[in-house]
Design a protein around this nucleic acid. Sequence first.
DNA 1: GTCTATAGGTAGATAGAC
DNA 2: GTCTATCTACCTATAGAC
Lengths: 200, 200
Amino acid sequence: MEETTEGKILAAAKEVFTRKGFAATRMQEIADVAGINKGLLHYYFRSKNKLFHAVFDEAFGQFALRINEVSAADMPLLEKIEAFVSQYMDTLIANPALPSFVINELNQKGEAFVKDLMSREKKPNLLPLIGQIQMEIQAGRIREVNPFHLVLNMLSMCAFPFIARPLFQGIAQIDDQTYLKLMESRKREVIDFIHNAIKI
Amino acid sequence: MEETTEGKILAAAKEVFTRKGFAATRMQEIADVAGINKGLLHYYFRSKNKLFHAVFDEAFGQFALRINEVSAADMPLLEKIEAFVSQYMDTLIANPALPSFVINELNQKGEAFVKDLMSREKKPNLLPLIGQIQMEIQAGRIREVNPFHLVLNMLSMCAFPFIARPLFQGIAQIDDQTYLKLMESRKREVIDFIHNAIKI
DNA sequence: GTCTATAGGTAGATAGAC
DNA sequence: GTCTATCTACCTATAGAC
């Protein structure tokens, strides 16, 4: 992020909002992390809600963009799955707290919030990928799976380990660094898992 | 839940805490849902924190119990996977908001909270299941997969669709009932997916 | 046990000096 | 643009009547 005050605020807000969620976040803490005065937050972003939306919309837009790029790419299916898992997990390794942030807020803000989000330009579109899966099935090149569930499986295996990270780290008794290394090796594991699950 | 005042409070607290999370929950709303006076909440459970722990510990205990039952059961692996997916998803269909509640709070309460939780009697134990997977691999009865990741895959595919439910419902534009029906048919799909992924 | 009233503290937002 | 001081509202928790 830039060195401008606005940039420092956005970076700090992203850090605190993603870690604590909207309701538990205090404007004071954002100001402290940014190293500036609390009043400045309101000078740049009139309210907590507006600041939150600046952070959330950017995160969600990035998520949608990444999904759509791969979904609509001109690539053989198996390659596409490999590219998706690899790229998506790299993004998550770089921003481990992001998926739980997005999903928590979607859960808590209610239906109207989601409806509004899906009426934007930058919404995720999985139809190209689902269509491609259907074609591969009809051509007899992969096993007959439900395309919706296949996509859901792929997203689940990529994202869930990051969302449920405290749980698994707690169960397995491992530290942050070890967990992230596990996620690194996980990419290959998930790709192979999916390939074996759908091959004829 | 019982018809006693304490029972009504616990039921209401579970409903509101799971829907809004700890920070966004108001004691007043719990009292309203329970149909009682706000002061009574403090009479029965001294503080918001204590009331929260009563709800959370119960939910987490149930989760751990279910995991451990299947993990340690005396069953062939493929049967065990089938039983786990089927039973676990049934629980989630009956309590769709529970996993995101547990996981959100684990994310937000910090490391000390998780450490404390894992030092209890009722912690989840996946070692028996992982050991059994290792034995099957050594016996050459399933493909060589990383046991940790296999278990993670299974849990991910079961739980993630419920945690990310608003997202997928928004993307797919379907209502609550349709989504739950999709989850019903998903059980078979996930079981087959795993079997194909690990078979020789 | 159950209610009303209120204390005490905190957080978002604003006003105004510099 | 940036800071200090403060207003206002809300929320947890308690005190006390019934």
